[in-house]
Design a protein around this nucleic acid. Sequence first.
DNA 1: CCCGCTCGTAGTCCTTTTGA
DNA 2: TCAAAAGGACTACGAGCGGG
Length: 324
Amino acid sequence: MNPSVIDIARHCKVSPSTVCRALNARRDINAATRQRILTACDKLGYVKDTGASNLRLRCSQVIACLMPDQTNELFIEKLYFIKQAVLTAGYHWRLYSFQDQAEATVLLREILSARPRGLILGLSLDRGLRNLLRGTRVPAVCYDCRTPGVDAVTLDRQQGAYEAARHMLSKGRRRILLLGSAPDSDRGRGYVKAITEAGLSVNHGLVVATPFGKNLFEYGYTLVKALLGGTAFDGILAVNDACAIGAIRALKEAGRQVPRHVSVIGFDNIMVTPFTTPALTTISQPKEEMAARCVELLLRRLADPNAARRNVRLKTALCVRESA
DNA sequence: CCCGCTCGTAGTCCTTTTGA
DNA sequence: TCAAAAGGACTACGAGCGGG
């Protein structure tokens, strides 16, 4: 049985309230008394019962983050900025990651039962889960996804892809490969818009959709390698930087120079790109701003649970690194 | 006598368990 | 079935004490 503040108080011959003062770094306690209590906590193996603490305070200080499992660099960077934003706002951060919808459902129930102060969701909720969320009244915000009735921060990928494709067209590229995105996806719509605005028609042989997988470096590499034998292209708009880096490797192996022979634009601007692949132009996600806006929306919802729902849509920025 | 520091008492929070 | 109790952390309020 874990010792409680009462046990610590008894051991130190003070009251439980004095122990609480010591544990919570309050000013109204003598420094020597505080040190004596903290030493006793260490000695007796005291661990705060957060359930009881939440009970007393009527809320927890935890902002939970439920995100899909991913192993890519972008995911790590996203989490880093979300965590920083949560900590900066003075809350604790807990990450829960899921592999499929079934696990997400189980985790969401677990999260809500712990009554977090807020929730950052990396998935769209179905009707059942929306009802669950509404019942607990835990304020939530969707990160880069949408759920009816829930605040959201999303990214305008269509505009990003549109600007990227226009950039390549302005450099004289006419056969641009859309690598990893379907024509009816956000990126695909931006691509199609730019192509048609330039008076060209969309060549469906230049649109290759790939499912999101564990290793997009590999996808980019193998797909471009396979295409190089038969399909002519002078530009690649890749679904993300990892895919683009794989594509560039395949191009190099085939003796094609980037960007002299083929322009390549990735998506996401992961931190490693400028060091590993300086020639790669990329469409930058404002990850830090997205995280900050999420927390901002949560705090707003905490202050006014009845505030009108908001969807903050952020723009991408084209980071041009190539010279061609 | 007043003020500030330190610490204790009593009561609160809400859900689950227990007992009548 | 329903009321009461339990669980642990926390704080509002107030008391004791010493120094100016």
